[in-house]
Each structure stands twice: as C-alpha cells, then as structure tokens.
Nucleic acid binder design. Structure first.
Lengths: 357, 357
DNA sequence: TTGTAAGCGTTATCAA
DNA sequence: TTGATAACGCTTACAA
C-alpha cells in the first residue's frame, strides 16, 4: 500500500462565519445604525473620522451585507425572476444571456426557473420566485399560470414578456417583428424563384409567436404583390412524432409545384431540422429540389447541406431590452405597456439559391 | 377612432400583501409559535382541534412561509447555486436540465450564475451565491476563484464539480470517463481504416477535461495495440480565430496520411464545427477524404455532411448525479470525495464510414 | 452627526 | 400541548 500522503491542511483562515453588521460595529466602536448608514448613504451624514473607522472595519472583516436580511427588511431583494419554457431552446438561452448581462450591470441577480416545457409548472415557478421576493419577472412562457403573473403585477412586481404574449395580461412585450420576418423570408424565396411555398410550424397551440408567424404567412400570400409575382402557399403544423405527416406534406408541396419550384419556410430551428430530415428521407436536395429558409440562425446553419438560409433574431438584444424595460419599471417608470419589436436579419445561404432560369 | 373598449377590471382579489405567519395565527386564534409548529412538526405536539384550526386558516389565507425569513432564521435557504462557465455551451445546458430536475424533486431551487466565459467573474459568482445563503454549489468552472469555493466548502457548503476539476480542491467530481471516450473514438476511427489521426482540441489552458482528453489520446496512440494496428497520431490546439492554423494542421495531416487515411477526433462540438468549416475550405469530403468523430452528440449532428459520428455524453445523468451527490452531502453524508465517471456512447454516422479496401 | 430601538417573517428556547 | 419571547442580520424612525 502506498504511504499515506499528508495533505497540507487548508490555509488556516480560521474563517469564522460571515461577519455581520454587528461585528463591524463592534470592531469600529460604533453602532449598527452608523455602519448601515455608511453602507447606504456614504455621502451624507457622516463625520470623516467615523467614516474611515467603519471603512477600515468593513475591509478588515471583509464584510458584505446579507441580501437575505436586506430583502426581509426592505421588501426588495435585488433579484429578478426569469422563467423560460425550455432552456433547451437555443433561443431561450440566447435571450437569457442578454438579460443576464443587463441585470448584472444594474446590480440585479437573475433567478432562473426552467419549465422544461411542462406548462403545469408555470404557476409553481412564479409562486416560488415570488416567495423569494424577486422584484420583477421576465417571462418567456405560455401564460398558463392561473393568473399568477397578473397577480404579481398587481402586487407591484413588474412583468416583461419576451417572444410570447399572454392573452390575458397587459405588460411590456419584447419580441421579434414576426410579421416582418416572415415577409423577409417569403419574399426572398419568391425572388429566388421558389413559387409554391409551404410554411411549416410547430403545432400552434395558442402560442402567440407561432400564431403571429402563421398569420403573417397567410397574409403575405394573400397580398396582391405576392399574387402578382405568382407566389402561392399553404401551411402545415408538424408534430414531433409525426414524421409521416411531414413527409406527406412535403411530397404534396412538390406535387403542387410542378411548374414553379417548391420552397419551405420553417418557424424555428427545431422544425428546420425536422424538415431537413424529411427531405433527406424523400431524397430531395436542398436548394436544388426544394428551397428552404428557417427562423433562427444557429451556429450549425452554415454546415447543414449547402448551408441553411435563415432569419436571424437579435436574441442578445431581445434579452437585454427585456431586462432594461423591467429595470426601468423597477425604478418607477409609469407608462402604459410598451411593445418593442425588433427586426430579423436574413442570412442567405445555399438552401435558397436561385432557381436556374 | 374605434370606440374605447371597456376592459373588465381585474378580478378584485383585493389581494393584500402576502399573508404572514402572524396573520395565520390571528385568524386561527393561536400563537405564531403554534402555527410554526404545525408547519414544521405537524405530527408531534399538536392537539387535533388546534391543528385543524390552523390548517383552515392556512388554507383560507393561502399562506406559505417566506423562504427569505426562514433562511435568515435557520441559516439554510433551500437554494443550490449552479455556476456554469458558459450557458451557450449545449453541454452546460444539458447538465443544467438534469441538475434542475433532481433539485426540484428534492425541494431545492437552483440559482444559476453564468460566467459568460469570463473567468474573472468566478469568484464574484460564488460570493454572490454565498451571500444568498445557497446551501451548496454545483460548479462547472475553471476554479480560478481565488479559493472562494474552497472557502465555501470549509464553511460547510458542500461543492460538487462537474466536468472540470479544480486542481486545488478536494470535492465530489462527476464527469464523463474522458479516457474511455477518447479510446472509443480513436479505436473506431482505426477500425474504420483511418490510420493517421489528429486530435483537435480547444486551447488546453489548464482545463482539466481538455487535458484529460488530450492525454488519453496520446496514451492510446502510444499503446502497443494501437501501434500494432498501424495507428499514428498527433494533437492540435485550435484557437477560435486561428482558421489558418487549423487549415494548415489539417493539410499536414493529409500529407502525413498519404498511405493510411486521415482521421480527426475533435474534443467538443464547437471544435467539430470549426473542423467541418476548415475541411470545407480545403475542399475535403467528410467520410471520404477525411474521417471525423467528435465529442458531444448534438441534435444537428445527423445533418451535417454525411452525418457526424459523435461520442455522446450522458449529460442528463451527469447533471442529475451531480445534484444528487450534493443533496446527499447536504443531508449530512460524510465521505471522502467521490469521483463518478460515466461512460460515453459512440454514435456512428457517415463521417467515419469505413475506408473502402 | 450618532445612537437606541423597533420590526421585517421566521424558528427555537423556555416557561406555563 | 401551547404561548411569550428572543433571536437571525439588516434598515429606519426617532431621540439625543
């Protein structure tokens, strides 16, 4: 057996429990109130002498106030609750990053609650977060919370909705300009010579962003400009496990397109992947047999097939703006609910290359 | 102008602020202590009569205790801190999901802190989380925290490390069996006829998982079995912005491989994408000119080129086990630091198809 | 300008 | 079995 190695004992910081404000007061020879004042109103009401004594004590004890105790006393916690329907969704993560940065800069900490696509937990999430005294919410959810978020709003905890509206709630709303983005994609496909279009979405199920995109597609197809250009289109809702249905829809699309080429517009990255898989099953070539433009520009988009044309969302900005809106409200801004829509950007790649004349 | 619609006023829940334990006590006509006892030791020490009175009052007021106040009093918060180096990394997100679920089931809430790959913030993160009285940490970080986590551990806040060890800390560690996974990938490439291998990693920079994978590759190549099979290999560290360097390394690989075919093993999904891009620039075909196996099985792996062969990590399990380990410690388990290594799974696709004889 | 003391919502100790 | 009461760490009237 190997000789027992003697580990160097941990540097004997003797670290007692965290220092409290009482410790600092004692060390500085002042009252707790004075320490508190030094911390919160450093400027006013403090003699130079005492101020430095406190300052020294704080440094010596490496003191920092307990946010929990502060929250309890003040009723405010410097916490912002972020509820996302699904962290697996790269869109959510990107928004999360933007929001996090803005919160951090404003001195807030983000408390994340992931629903794992289980709508049931939405109410639970908001209540848990409320219990922890979060000061406001950023919600990327369905709104099936039994009024919990509306309730929070009424209690003076502002709410900002990202990407998905809640039908029953008036709140600031930050999102992609879905209608504009759909037009961008559809027009591009048309311009590239794809004339018979199919819009493929996840099952709409009352999710506002899905509704808006689907509606925008129908509207665009109905416009005279599109009709004049000979653009026609249908929509299809693709369920996770219904590969056969999707295959069938795409086959039908190709049939209809006998004359003009078929083009597909997908409503998010997950659906894009499903369509790519289906096309592969059908033996159809991207950008040759079928054109494709998908929502959400991912890191892998350039490398699938001939490169996937996409509509990029300004995810970082969305998250950042959502956080900023919320923080403004926390600072007391009184304003009717705002709607902030950001434009998408078309990334052209091989999957929508022009149909040879 | 459209007639002004009269919105139905919000259901007049008259919702006063959250009920406190004092409210419940008053409503039930008992003392706060009794209510507290009912909540915490429902079983012992309570006359049936009083118990039901309290129960009714709790229900009527929809009371639930304030975790903040509990944390202040008990010193425990039912909070677990999760620090990840980068939420953008799909691996981190997957782990997050697993951990979150386990925590939730055990009645803990996860507080997420994302470093955004800014190592500087690691210490800050741990201190912020500590201030919020998190009871323990799950860390997927570098360990450049100036001893903050070691310090936390000493204060009785257990720490579990995921995927990345901290050189200076003894703590439970949960990770992929990197050595095994590397062998799995390398051997597979060899078996498929790719004889001249290149291991491409992110800059190692002291990150333990990167070190382990690189070391395992060197070791495997040095083994007699590999040598006997005619396997040879080198390693390359690919920096984000150094496309030229990577191109050069791959060109050199192909040169060396004149006789046997060249194969590449990449250390994570980001690097995989870089290699795919480089190969495209060089006009080399995946699975024909060059074999490729990459760490991390992503949703898009099947759709890049002929399909990317990958080594899948049991991410959900990793997160779950990390959380469970932590929770065991929180329950008082005294044990020397454990190391839990999980095996990876090889997913064979077109990028490593056998070299035709 | 500083200190005293009350109280935020809990739980735990002690009597009753 | 129940009820006062004193903390937990902090902020804030109010007094001095």
């Amino acid at each position: 057996m190997a000789a027992k190695k003697i580990l160097p004992s941990v540097p004997a910081v003797r670290s007692a429990a965290r220092a409290t404000i009482a410790d600092v007061a004692r060390a500085a020879g002042v009252s707790k109130a004075t320490v508190s004042r030094f911390l919160n109103h450093r400027d006013r009401l403090l003699s130079k002498d005492i101020a430095t004594r406190v300052e020294v004590a704080v440094a010596a004890l490496d003191y920092s106030p307990s946010p929990m105790a502060q929250a309890l006393k003040r009723g405010r916690s410097r916490l912002i609750g972020l509820v996302v329907a699904d962290v697996t969704n790269p869109f959510s993560v990107a928004v999360l990053r933007g929001a996090e940065k803005a919160c951090q800069e404003a001195g807030y900490l983000l408390m994340l609650f992931n629903l794992g696509n289980d709508g049931q937990r939405e109410r639970e999430a908001i209540e848990a977060l409320t219990a922890y005294q979060v000061e406001g919410f950023i919600l990327n959810t369905l709104g099936h919370d039994g009024g919990a978020s509306a309730n929070a709003a009424r209690h003076g905890r502002p709410v900002v909705l990202v990407d998905r509206r809640h039908h029953d709630m008036q709140a600031d709303f930050v999102s992609l300009d879905n209608a504009g983005a759909v037009r961008l994609g559809a027009r591009h496909l048309g311009d590239a010579g794809y004339r018979e279009l199919l819009f493929v979405s996840e099952p709409i199920k009352n999710v506002s962003s899905r509704e808006e995109r689907a509606a925008a597609f129908r509207a665009y197809i109905g416009e005279s400009a599109a009709a004049k250009a000979g653009l026609r289109g249908k929509s299809f809702e693709s369920a996770v496990d219904d590969e056969a249905g999707l295959d069938q829809a795409l086959r039908a699309l190709c049939q209809r397109a006998r004359t003009g080429r078929p083009g597909v517009l997908t409503s998010n990255a997950v659906v894009t992947l499903r369509v790519v898989a289906s096309l592969a099953r059908l033996g159809l070539q991207l950008g040759v047999d079928v054109g494709l433009v998908g929502f959400d520009d991912t890191e892998w988009s350039p490398f699938v097939g001939p490169g996937l044309s996409t509509i990029a969302q300004p995810t970082d900005e969305l998250g950042r703006i959502a956080a900023l809106c919320l923080i403004e409200r926390l600072k007391g801004l009184q304003l009717p609910p705002r709607q902030i829509l950001l434009a998408g950007t078309l990334m052209v790649r091989g999957s929508s290359q022009p149909v040879p004349a």
